[in-house]
């Protein structure tokens, strides 16, 4: 299959995943009613369930997954490091710090803007850190360092939580979930994610050339610093908006690009689009699974499930690299 056929196939699978996913939940809805409900042509109850509860959640899963997948592919392409991912290079940690600070100070209405603001603060700090020598090594060192700092400050905020209830709120938020997803979340996250995806996709052709090393890429007319700026801004938009609405969802950005690379091929530019679609499909399916298994007790958190799947994969990659 060529790249265009793969794109269309993945788009089709993603659309199908949306339609199938909205049928699952506490109330089971069959495929035909799901389609009718999406078009507002079913019973009022089903229309209501699908359009106001399930569709926003599924669309948000698609947005967050697409942002994570594309960011991971772009970061791995730019750093030429198989282990690079938004979670390891500080983007998620900075966004999470913003949200945790907002929750700590009782500003729960400002969780979303705080997360996106801190994602940009982190992105700016990483860019400034690597200003002396833009490129893979600067981004990796700056990202890991600033991410570690953000994680440490998040730990401090949790340490200073005034009571166990406040602490549990922070912990649950950090586990990542889509259970409170609603339409305003989609209206907030979707345009930011799309803008971030556009920046990452625009950087794609340069990533192909950067595979020849930064020096050779420069000699072929590629600006390393401009490419880095596009990727850092794209990741900040995708990850910031994703963390803002869903909390920290780990490891999707790490392993989705690897699976896509293994199944489809190594082209860095197409990999960004395919990883976006793959990330969207993966998160829709995992969140559907969580809804299907939801019982009377504490529900499973999305970030926990993705990490449980992602960490063994991460260890396998690290083992292969050594």
């Amino acid at each position: 299959m060529n790249s265009r056929t793969w794109s269309l196939s993945l788009f089709a699978i993603c659309a199908l995943a949306v339609v199938i996913s909205v049928g699952f939940g506490t109330t089971q809805i069959n495929f035909r009613d799901s389609l009718a409900g999406l078009a507002g042509q079913s019973t009022p109850d089903i229309n209501e369930i699908i359009q106001t509860i399930r569709l926003p959640r599924v669309l948000l899963a698609a947005c967050v997954g697409a942002g994570l997948g594309a960011s991971g592919a772009a970061l791995q392409g730019f750093t030429r490091n198989a282990l690079a991912a938004p979670g390891l290079l500080g983007f998620s940690a900075c966004a999470a710090l913003g949200a945790v600070l907002a929750l700590y100070f009782g500003l729960s209405k400002f969780v979303t803007p705080a997360a996106i603001f801190f994602a940009f603060v982190g992105a700016t700090a990483i860019t400034l850190f690597s200003r002396r020598k833009p490129g893979a090594s600067g981004l990796v060192l700056g990202g890991i360092g600033i991410g570690a700092l953000a994680t440490a400050v998040t730990g401090l905020v949790m340490n200073l939580a005034p009571n166990p209830w406040a602490l549990s709120e922070l912990i649950y938020w950090l586990m990542g979930s889509l259970k409170n997803a609603d339409l305003p979340d989609v209206i907030f996250a979707a345009p930011l994610t799309l803008l971030g995806l556009a920046l990452l996709l625009y950087s794609g052709p340069a990533l192909r050339v950067l595979g020849l090393g930064e020096e050779t890429a420069q000699s072929l007319g590629i600006s390393v610093s401009q490419t880095q700026l596009l990727i850092v801004a794209g990741c900040a938009l995708c990850i910031g908006s994703g963390v803002a609405v869903a909390g920290a969802i780990g490891f999707v950005g790490l392993f989705i690009p690897h699976i896509i690379r293994f199944v489809i091929g190594p082209d860095e530019a197409w990999l960004i689009l395919f990883s976006a679609l793959g990330g969207a499909i993966f998160l829709i399916l995992i969140d559907t699974l969580i809804r299907m298994t939801a019982g009377p007790g504490t529900p499973l958190y999305l970030g926990i499930v993705t990490s449980l799947i992602g960490v063994p994969f991460f260890l396998f990659l690290a083992w292969r690299q050594t």
Binding site: R208, G211, L212, G213, E215, T216, S219, L220, I222, P266
Partner: peptide
């Protein structure tokens, strides 16, 4: 056109695609 000392290329790319990168400008 510049041929760097110890030039590198992505291991899993085809030769034809690597040569095609020379047309980037």
């Amino acid at each position: 056109s510049y041929l760097a000392q110890n030039a590198v290329a992505p291991d899993d790319h085809k030769v034809r695609n690597i040569v095609a990168l020379g047309r980037t400008p």
